[in-house]
């Protein structure tokens, strides 16, 4: 099994890990939090330095310094007055920023509904009226420079939607609909992950947000809106096998009889970058491996193993799925 770097960060970054995604924002929502973070780090550094200096004086300072430190005046000044001033300022900043971040969705926003599932993401692109325009899974495509309202739901237990470079996280709670707004200012692939423990394979519940230039985005969505070509050759045999093996009971492929909703929508699986909710690069080999033995790749997931199918059948199904772009 090969694990390849999937995400587009330069080599030096991959080696050093710096800057970490939370401090390397790619949009206005995340970058306002990054600014706050740096202010907080500076505050913490200054206070820690003050405490360490005071401790040093208390333990090893000269008699004169120590006697100035050893009274209730210090407690009033450093323990009460200073925190009150600093915390008041931070509170005002934090509350105003919260208000900005929690601005209600605007009519101009692009709407996407993401539903948390054990352990993958159901994605529905919504039109203005809120109708489902396109279904997908584990990958969200957005245009650069536009604010996206993500409606967060859950069909089973609590999950949490987090793309550190684009915004903070909001939970997906059964019975509720939460809203998160995000925006990317540069094209790229942004890693996301479930942040709320959801049992079993919580660790392997990733996804990605792909930001396109506006033109590119328009082309991409238009291509997806066109019906997929009829599969030929090996892929045609794969389509038949897909149907005969009962895959359609759980998976939907637009324009075919496969209309199951229990598993990820496969209408556009061929164009996805990853398999298994962000854990494997998507290619013929990994697809064959996944269908044949998903449990060894992602223990506990709901997909049964099709290990009884001969290798050539698995290859044919993988070839068919590749055509669904």
């Amino acid at each position: 099994m090969t694990w390849l770097p999937i995400f587009t960060r330069s080599t030096e970054q991959a080696l050093s890990g710096w800057p970490p995604p939370v401090l390397d924002p790619a949009g206005p929502f995340a970058s306002s939090i990054t600014t706050l973070s740096w202010i907080l780090f500076a505050m913490a550094g200054a206070v820690l330095a003050l405490v360490l200096a005071a401790l040093w004086v208390a333990l090893a300072g000269s008699q004169r310094l120590r006697s100035r430190l050893g009274g209730t005046r210090v407690v009033w000044l450093a323990g009460i007055a200073l925190p009150v001033v600093v915390l008041t300022a931070l509170l005002i900043y934090g509350l105003s920023l919260t208000r900005t971040l929690r601005t209600p969705p605007q009519p101009s926003d692009i709407r996407v509904r993401v539903t948390g599932e054990m352990w993958w993401w159901r994605v529905a692109y919504l039109d203005r009226a809120g109708g489902v325009a396109m279904m997908d899974a584990n990958e969200i495509h957005i245009p650069v420079g536009r604010t996206v309202t993500v409606e967060l739901e859950s069909s089973d237990i609590i999950h949490s939607f987090w793309v550190p470079r684009l915004s903070g996280k909001i939970d997906m709670v059964p019975g509720r609909r939460n809203v998160l707004r995000m925006q990317a200012d540069a094209p790229g692939v942004y890693a996301g992950q479930c942040a709320e423990y959801c049992g079993g394979a919580h660790a392997l519940m990733g996804f990605m947000v792909v930001a396109h230039d506006p033109d590119d985005y328009a082309r991409f969505m238009a291509a997806r809106a066109r019906p997929a070509p009829q599969p030929g050759g090996q892929a045609a045999r794969g389509a038949q096998l897909f149907q005969d093996s009962g895959c359609g009971a759980c998976h939907r492929i637009a324009g075919t009889e496969a209309n199951g909703l229990a598993g990820p929508d496969l209408s556009h699986v061929g164009s996805r970058r990853t398999l298994g909710a962000g854990i494997l690069p998507n290619n013929r080999g990994t697809m064959i491996g996944w269908i044949g033995d998903p449990q060894s790749l992602k223990p506990g997931n709901r997909m049964p193993a099709y290990s009884t199918l001969p290798g050539q059948d698995l290859t044919a199904i993988a070839a068919y799925l590749e055509t669904r772009r």
Partner: peptide, 26 residues
Amino acid sequence: IIIFVMGGLTGVMVALVPFDYQAHDS
């Protein structure tokens, strides 16, 4: 005391809602 102060300072950070949106559950 030193360790506690460091933890307290990060505590002030996560008490601020926007920072917590990033830090929470990480």
